[in-house]
């Protein structure tokens, strides 16, 4: 019979680190539940786009006018879905700020959760909420039977909006690490409303005064808004839209990385 190891040394040997740096679906589920508990977040991501659509997309003189492969109602629906998805993405990232303020980030450093796993969880939380927002808006658009576009475009456009919102997950993370406040979302709501106007989500940029229009084209929602409408309009991609999205993605991601490094540097 082999020698009997002490429970202690055997115990130490049996200990291991969790897979995937601690990433797991239980924690992800709880993160989503937390976001859904925030009334402001739910109202802005799930209720606002629908209400705005009912107010400004339906039964207007322009609703049934053609727009590319579909009509204006579909165009408005896409804009509002983008607004909801972008807000959801920002909320997920901005949770970081609340967690830092409440000392949860420090608590997590006493667990095996690795920083990449933590960020992944935040981004996925954003995407899950964003998917809900886009789905609700599109389902209402479909049920009210005024928005019209070919069947495949419903899917393609929803995916474009959803994946495009990742740009604002990076923005949310950047702001989350930059602003150590529990009230970050109040500020974010304001900033996103301004960016949404500037990006043409509520009123087409073409209707702005020329001077305002020139400025609007540099704002971070402009390029993304143009791109998500491209499948519907079928008007081709302008390279400046792509540059706009990529440039802002680099700025947000670099900013988030910079603040994140500063935050996790173990002094």
């Amino acid at each position: 019979m082999s020698t009997v190891p002490s429970t202690f040394t055997a115990d130490l040997k049996a200990r291991r680190a969790p897979a995937l740096g601690g990433f797991n679906l239980t924690a992800l589920r709880l993160e989503v539940r937390r976001l859904l508990r925030n009334r402001r977040t739910v109202v802005i991501t799930m209720v606002f786009p629908v209400v705005f659509y009912l107010l400004f997309g339906l039964h207007k003189s322009y609703s049934k006018l053609p727009a590319g492969h579909g009509n204006i109602a579909a165009f408005v629906m896409i804009s509002l879905a983008l607004y909801g998805a972008v807000f959801a993405a920002t909320s997920g990232g901005a949770l970081v700020s609340i967690e830092r303020a409440q000392g949860w980030s420090r608590q997590l450093r006493l667990t095996p959760l690795s920083p990449p796993a933590y960020i992944t969880m935040k981004v996925l939380t954003s995407l899950i909420l964003g998917a809900g927002s886009v789905a609700v808006t599109f389902v209402v658009g479909r049920l009210t039977a005024e928005a019209s576009m070919p069947g495949y475009l419903w899917i393609v456009t929803a995916l474009c909006v959803w994946i495009g919102s990742l740009l604002f997950a990076a923005f949310g993370l950047f702001m989350g690490y930059l602003l150590p406040t529990e009230n970050v979302m109040q500020l974010m709501s304001l900033i996103l409303a301004v960016l949404s106007f500037a990006g043409g989500l509520f009123i087409p940029v073409s209707q702005f005064a020329p001077a305002v229009r020139d400025i609007a084209k540099w704002t971070p929602l402009y390029g993304l808004n143009q791109l998500v409408h491209t499948p519907l309009l079928g008007n081709g991609v302008d390279w400046t839209w792509v540059v706009n999205v990529l440039a802002w993605l680099i700025i947000f991601a670099a900013g988030a990385t910079w603040r994140f490094r500063k935050d996790t540097a173990r002094g």
Binding site: A19, G103, W104, Q107, P112
Partner: peptide
């Protein structure tokens, strides 16, 4: 192998007591 009870902070106000422990537990292998 190590865990700690800190003096203040380190809790999320919008989770329940049970959820907080469940969340923490989910991060460990054992």
């Amino acid at each position: 192998l190590i865990s700690a009870v800190m003096q203040t902070g380190g809790l999320l106000k919008d989770l329940t007591v049970g959820e907080t422990v469940e969340y923490t537990a989910s991060l460990f292998a054992r």
